[in-house]
Design a protein around this nucleic acid. Structure first.
Length: 754
RNA sequence: GGGCGCGUAGCUCAGUGGUAGAGCACUGUGUUCACACCGCAGGGGUCGUAGGUUCAAUCCCUACCGCGCCCACCA
């Protein structure tokens, strides 16, 4: 929570909850008792994934399969009547001590005559039957397979089918996976660790001549995800939740769209898991956690109740009861989070309007552990989905792309990054890099870049402050008459629209990039540069109040839009720029009302930006000294352009460092800049390299011609004109005309140069 | 074995059936009074490979190659 606080997570910290809190614990007990009452939770003796290091049962999800180099031992079990042997193979030879059968496929004619006969198990000398079972695959190995019901999930099922009750299944291991007596295990083996026992058993088999051969092979081995030791299937009594029944409604909720999953591709994963779900083992032999609300009588009968008194009510007051010492899987309580946090079952979160939630934002790594189980429990106990949208984001990985984990110790400490670049920069980085369905390799350079962005914003605000700009909180933009102001208002509204769309789609990267591009490339690079003369009073001899008001309004909008990404700096600037009635965090989100915008003004500024840009590019390419002011003589300019030039004279002179000269261009060397219909001739006799200017113009002409020819070719294709969408054809025609005219103008300029 | 994802500029990544984008890095340049954590200009990609569909494919389909993840009882 320290990290979250420093990141500026706007949680309701006054309502912090911990699953072990008293109120939450009551909800956990209630759910356990209720599930039991509804027949959805029961005690069962069956094989469980057992962690011999922590000496506890774990759930299927806590087992990770690793491929390791192992061996495959082929054993020869003698037939009881002495007529020969039958071959079986195993990757875990020590388990033969607890073998209770050999299985062959009922359709396997090779062994049909042996079914029902006995085998004398090596080492222990026990007689075990040869049984017919579909599990045995005739294609694999010898076609016969040893059956150890107490130590293998498949064999457990085979054993049951063969009529062996779980209570009668041989169990050869203790909780720490050491050999115990069962079915005639030699004393020498008792107490050996399972891996020591393996060596010993192999040696004994070899001595008996029962070892046929040993092969190297890769084997899939289960490991505990926390302990890292090999998991043993172990026969114990545990509490299980009937996950299959709970999964039905959870599947329907996503199938019907009651829960929207983003990105959609995760739906399939969700379905696959829930459709094939196994009983969920929820008891743990640990001392830390919610203790299971079950009491046992002297005869082992379990009484599930919220309190010991209620258990006595079931068992009878005179019966001595002992509480189950086990605790619940931590995810059992976590699954109740969406409603147990709000006082349920005493309070009714639905009536409070706090259930369902809108969006759950979650890493995909806990989709099964937590998300799906919240859906199951939420539907079972609240009768509704816990959240309407499930957003699954990528995982932050280390520089090499490996998943960060506490146990591996390769975590990136967000606090260190915050210390160096600020929480705002880190938040913006994570948002900008969070594109759906992809992990994030955290790049420090990126964080640094967004730190720079924050600094840029800071400096822009400083500029505003020193020019009387700031503190215009109205939703409606101030009235604007100047094209530059109309333009930035339109750009702002466009940005709000784009941001709204991106956020509605949960595209945080798109949202971040949109606002970044607007603030830096539009507002700072163009708008602030364009209005400098106006707000400093240089232009008209007095500061322009309209521009101040518009700039202040835009800056305010920027702070609001940026706040979700960069809450700290924006809140600071919000208060620094003007006295405010409330904090930025509760400011109204900007409206995206595009009515009343002036397209002509927008077109004018777009033209202005093109003109300044083209002049700058020509100057840079021709190595004109940056400080030099040049005259620009007009050719072919229409009335509209002349008017625009007049309206934007100051900005053009300032930013392109040219002065429009009505006089015809003098003869001699000159650079020529073509923007739309007009050509701007910049006399540079003796200053520029004519060859360089010729090359520049020729390159521009060739570029336009190349595009012109490509368009002409496409339009010359009958297939295109007939089959393409009319809009595409129209656009191609318009582009062709434009490129063609442009190419001509460059050629004319080139010719003029001589 | 089943499922999913990725392979686009040097790096990290967006993206679209109709002439390829961002940030960083790189090159040139700059003492214009918000900012060098900056400005201006610029170079750089046969969009993994091979087929197919289409007037048109980086984008759709198929196969293949490489990388990653999840699930799974082949003894």
């Amino acid at each position: 929570t320290r990290q979250l606080r420093r990141l500026g997570a706007s949680c309701d910290w006054a309502n912090e909850r911990f699953t072990m809190d008293e109120g939450f614990s009551k909800a956990v007990v209630h759910v356990f008792v209720e599930l039991h009452r509804r027949g959805l939770l029961y005690r069962d003796k069956r094989l469980v994934n057992w962690d011999p290091h922590f000496r506890t049962a774990i759930s299927d999800l806590e087992v990770e399969t690793r491929e390791v180099q192992g061996k495959f031992w082929h054993l020869a079990y003698p037939l009881a009547d002495g007529s020969g042997t039958i071959s079986v193979a195993t990757t875990r030879p020590e388990t033969m001590l607890a073998d209770m059968a050999v299985a062959v496929n009922p359709a396997d004619e090779r062994y049909a005559h042996l079914v029902g006969t006995m085998v004398r198990l090596p080492i222990t000398g026990r007689l075990i039957p040869i049984v017919a079972d579909e599990h045995a695959d005739p294609e694999l190995g010898s076609g016969a397979v040893k059956i150890t019901p107490g130590h293998d999930f498949n064999d457990f099922e085979v054993g049951r089918r063969a009529g062996i009750a779980p209570a009668d299944m041989l169990n050869m291991l203790d909780a720490e996976a050491r050999i115990v007596q069962c079915g005639g295990v030699p004393d020498a083996l008792i107490g050996l660790d399972r891996f020591e026992a393996r060596k010993a058993v192999v040696a004994l088999l070899e001595a008996e001549g029962a070892l046929e051969k040993i092969e190297d092979r890769l084997i899939q081995t289960p490991y505990g995800d926390r302990s890292g030791v090999v998991i043993e299937p172990w026969l114990t009594d545990q509490w299980y939740v009937d996950a299959k029944t709970l999964a039905g409604p959870a599947l329907d909720a996503v199938r019907s769209g009651a829960i929207r999953v983003v990105p959609e591709t995760w739906k399939k994963t969700y379905y696959n898991w829930l459709e094939d779900i196994q009983p969920w083992c929820v008891s743990r032999q640990l001392w830390w956690g919610h203790q299971i609300p079950a009491w046992y009588g002297p005869d082992g009968t379990a009484y599930v109740a919220a309190t010991e008194a209620e258990a006595h009510a079931q068992a009878g007051v005179e019966v001595a009861l002992t509480r189950d010492p086990d605790v619940l899987d931590t995810w059992f309580s976590s699954a109740l989070w969406p409603f147990a946090t709000m006082g349920w079952p005493e309070a009714d979160p639905k009536a409070m309007g706090r259930y369902p939630n809108d969006v759950l934002i979650s890493g995909f790594d806990i989709l099964f552990f937590w998300d799906a189980r919240m859906v199951m429990q939420g539907l079972e106990f609240m009768g509704d989905v816990p959240f309407r949208t499930l957003y699954l984001h990528g995982l932050v990985r280390d520089a090499t792309g490996a998943k960060m984990s506490k146990s591996k110790g390769n975590t990136v400490d967000p606090l260190g990054l915050i210390d160096r670049f600020g929480a705002d920069a880190l938040r913006f980085t994570l948002a900008a890099m969070e594109s759906q369905g992809r992990d994030i390799k955290l790049d420090e350079k990126r964080v640094e870049g967004y730190r720079n962005f924050a600094t840029k914003l800071w400096n822009a605000a400083r500029f505003a402050q020193s020019n009387g700009i700031g503190g215009s909180t109205t939703q409606e933009p101030p009235s604007a008459t100047l094209p530059v102001n109309k333009w930035i208002v339109a750009e702002t509204i466009r940005t709000v629209q784009a941001l709204d769309l991106a956020l509605a789609d949960l595209r945080f990267d798109e949202a971040a990039n949109t606002v970044y591009q607007f603030v830096w490339s539009r507002f700072c690079d163009w708008y602030l540069e364009l209005i400098k003369p106006a707000v400093s009073g240089v232009e008209r001899g007095a500061v322009d109040a309209e521009t101040q008001a518009v700039a202040g309004w835009v800056l305010d909008r920027i702070l609001v839009l940026l706040h979700p990404f960069m809450p700290f700096i924006t809140e600071e600037l919000w208060h620094a720029l003007a006295p405010r009635e409330h904090d930025l965090i509760v400011a109204a989100w900007p409206m995206a009302d595009a009515r009343g915008l002036d397209p002509a003004a927008q077109a004018e500024i777009d033209w202005l930006i093109r003109l300044i840009g083209d002049v700058r590019a020509a100057r840079a390419e021709l190595n004109v000294p940056p400080g030099a002011r040049l005259a620009a003589h007009l050719r072919d300019a229409d009335v509209e352009t002349v008017a625009r030039l007049e309206r934007n004279r100051a900005a053009i002179e300032r930013m392109a460092r040219i002065a429009i000269d009505p006089a015809p261009a003098p003869t001699g060397g000159a650079a020529q800049v073509v923007v739309d219909e007009a050509t701007y001739v910049l006399p540079l006799e003796g200053v520029i390299d004519l060859a360089a200017e010729r090359a520049r113009l020729a390159r521009a002409a060739e570029g336009a011609e190349k595009e012109r020819d490509a368009l002409a070719k496409r339009l010359g294709n009958p297939g295109f004109v007939e089959k393409a969408k009319p809009e595409a054809v129209d656009k191609a025609r318009a582009d062709l005309a434009e490129r063609s005219a442009e190419a001509d103008r460059f050629r004319i300029a080139l010719k003029r140069l001589g």
